[in-house]
């Protein structure tokens, strides 16, 4: 049934910290590695070693340049900065990809809110990919069915793997700890706390999709310090005691 659940008991999802992400693409590769052998058909590539390589990936990292707006009364405009931006399915509460599906292959689980595709039912019409404003769904070039992030549903409940591994592959692999997994319906969860403290936000709120995944904004850079820090001085520590007397004496002689 491709109607959306009225509400879900939990809202499992990701919180991605744009202040921390270094754009290493490890999550992208780890996601492809796990999901090519996990839920559903492998994530295929076409012309992988040719001129126009293309393949299905469930998580991708874009890199943006942000030029801060000139603040009124600021001494100078802060310089542009680079923000690495990982993007995968946001497991929206009001997921437009689910309701457009004609076959019932796309569904949102009422217990944990994960949006999944039953690949045995998918006819590969591509309408769900058109309905998603985030580009979270990609048609597999070999299997001809729609692929999307499963929130590693085959890891997070998997009792055959060590407990610390029972998080999505992208979260487990992130060397900078920029990705966090948890229940965003529980206000006491770590992820909800992070969102509350840091002002976590929705992508494209104007599309009305109510994404579960949240993004934490980059912290403002301290470009407006009163005096620039003299880094050279820090490299030459001031000598004290006997060495200090010697330093002074030699300077006076010299």
């Amino acid at each position: 049934m491709t109607s959306l659940p009225q509400s879900t008991d939990r809202k499992l999802g990701l919180v991605i910290d744009l202040d921390i992400c270094v754009g290493c693409h490890a999550c992208v590769v780890a996601c492809k590695e796990w999901n090519t052998g996990g839920y559903g058909a492998p994530l295929s590539d076409q012309d992988a070693y040719g001129d126009e390589p293309v393949g299905s990936w469930l998580n991708r990292v874009h890199t943006f340049e942000v030029t801060p707006r000139a603040e009124p009364g600021a001494k100078a405009v802060a310089p542009a900065r680079v923000v690495h931006f990982p993007k995968s399915c946001l497991h929206c509460e009001d997921a437009p990809c689910v309701t457009v599906c004609p076959t019932g292959a796309s569904f949102k689980r009422s217990d944990d809110g994960i949006v999944l595709v039953n690949e045995d039912w998918c006819i590969g019409c591509g309408l769900c990919a058109w309905a998603c404003p985030y580009g979270a769904r990609e048609m597999d070039g070999a299997e001809k069915v729609m692929k999307k992030c499963t929130l590693c549903v085959d890891r997070i409940y998997n009792e055959n793997i060590p407990e610390e591994d029972r998080v999505p592959s992208c979260v487990r692999t992130c060397p900078a700890k920029a990705r966090h997994f948890g229940d965003l319906a529980d206000p006491d969860s770590d992820v909800s706390q992070m969102v509350a403290e840091r002002g976590g936000y929705d992508l494209m709120p104007e599309q009305g999709t109510k994404p579960v995944n949240k993004y934490l904004p980059p912290r403002p850079k301290q470009d407006d310090l009163a005096e620039p820090i003299n880094l050279a001085a820090l490299a030459e520590p001031k000598a004290t005691g006997f060495l200090g007397w010697l330093d002074d004496a030699l300077t006076r002689i010299g």
């Binding site: 340049e65 942000v66 030029t67 936000y201 993004y215 904004p217």
Partner: peptide, 12 residues
């Protein structure tokens, strides 16, 4: 990207 809150955003 939500980065519009900071300033002008473009793909690098």
């Amino acid at each position: 990207t939500g980065l519009g809150a900071i300033g002008k955003t473009r793909l690098l």
